[in-house]
Design a protein around this nucleic acid. Structure first.
Lengths: 162, 162
DNA sequence: AGGATCGTCTGTGTAGCACCAACCATTTAT
DNA sequence: ATAAATGGTTGGTGCTACACAGACGATCCT
C-alpha cells in the first residue's frame, strides 16, 4: 500500500454537511423536546423567519418537502400558536404562513437552548469561525448575502437571557 | 460554565445545517445511485478517509450511530470492496476498518459526480466561499485545523480529476 | 360552466435508525 | 483455569420521517 495520493480528493461539502447535521440533530432532539419542538420544526421556523408571509407551496419548495407533509408540520406549529395561517387577499385559495410573536420568541428560545449542542458539535471552531460558518450557511440557504450591519442589528433585538 | 458572550448572537447554525444537508442529500441520492452508493455510505467513506484504520466501535462513535447498524453499513461497503475489515493484531476481537484503493477511487468519483448537486445547493456562494465553507466544515468534523498550505496544495492537483 | 390550482385529509409504503437479545471469539481479571 | 468483560455479528421490533396517491372543497381563470 504505497501512501501516494496522486489523486487528491475533491472538496465536496456534502458528506461533511450530512455528518455535522446529524450530530447536531441528535443533540437538538433532546434539547428541543422540553420546548415541544423537533428539529424539523426549527428548520421550518427558521425559514419562516427569513421569508415571512409565504405560501405553503413556496414553503414546501424551499423545504423541498412534499406539500401534503407540510400540512401536518404546520398543523403542529399552528396548534402551538407559533405560526398563523391566513388567507391571501389576492388569492383566497392560498394560505399565507407567518411567524407569530410567540413563534419568533420560541424560535429564539430554542436557539438559545441549542447553545450547548452547538458547542459540542462545533467545538473545534473558535467563536469567530462559527460566526463565519453561520454567515456562509445562511447565505447558501437564503441566497442572499448577509450584511454585517444587518446581523448586528438583529443581534440587538434578539438579546434575551441567552 | 457560565461564560456569556458579550454579543448575544443566537446565530445558531443547527437549522441551517439541517436544511442544507437535506437539500444536498436529496440531490445526492440520485447522483450517487449509479455508483451504487447512498449518502450515508459517502459519509462513512469520508470519515474513513480522514481516520483510516479505526475500529468499528470508533467509527460508530464518530458517526454517532448504533454499532449494530454500522455492521450493515460496512457489509455493503465491503461487498463492493470499497473497504476492508481485518483483525487487529493487538486485539484480535477488533476489526480494523480501512479504505481500499477502490474505495478511495470510488469516493473520489462520487465527489466529482456531486459537483452538480453542490452547484445547485451552494449556488449562492462563490467558489472561494465554498472552499471556506468546506474548510470550516472539515475542521468542525475532524477537530483538526486544516493548514492552508496543505489545502492549497491539494487544490492545485485536484483539478485534473474532474 | 369547466378546468386548473391551493390546501386539506387519509392512507400506504419504504428507509433510516435506535434498541433489545442472543451468540461467538477473544481478552482481561480473579 | 475459570469467570467476566469486550468487539463484532445476526435477527427482530418499533418508531419516525417521508414520498406518493386519491379524493375533496374552495377558489381562480377562462
Amino acid at each position: 500500500m504505497s501512501a501516494q495520493p496522486l489523486v487528491p480528493s475533491e472538496h465536496r461539502s456534502g458528506a461533511l454537511l450530512d455528518h455535522l447535521a446529524r450530530r447536531m440533530r441528535l443533540r437538538s432532539e433532546s434539547v428541543l423536546a422540553p420546548l415541544g419542538l423537533r428539529p424539523r420544526h426549527l428548520v421550518a421556523l427558521t425559514v419562516l423567519r427569513d421569508g415571512d408571509g409565504i405560501s405553503q407551496q413556496a414553503l414546501a419548495s424551499t423545504l423541498e418537502m412534499d406539500s401534503t407533509n407540510i400540512v401536518g408540520l404546520l398543523n403542529d406549529l399552528e396548534a402551538k400558536q407559533l405560526i398563523e395561517r391566513r388567507r391571501s387577499p389576492e388569492d383566497r385559495r392560498r394560505h399565507v404562513v407567518e411567524l407569530t410573536e410567540d413563534g419568533a420568541k420560541r424560535l429564539n428560545e430554542a436557539e438559545c437552548a441549542l447553545a450547548g449542542a452547538e458547542n459540542e458539535v462545533l467545538g473545534a471552531l473558535e467563536p469567530a469561525d462559527r460566526e463565519r460558518l453561520y454567515l456562509l450557511l445562511r447565505q447558501a440557504a437564503t441566497g442572499t448575502t448577509v450584511i454585517c450591519s444587518t446581523a448586528i442589528h438583529e443581534d440587538e433585538t434578539s438579546s434575551d437571557t441567552c
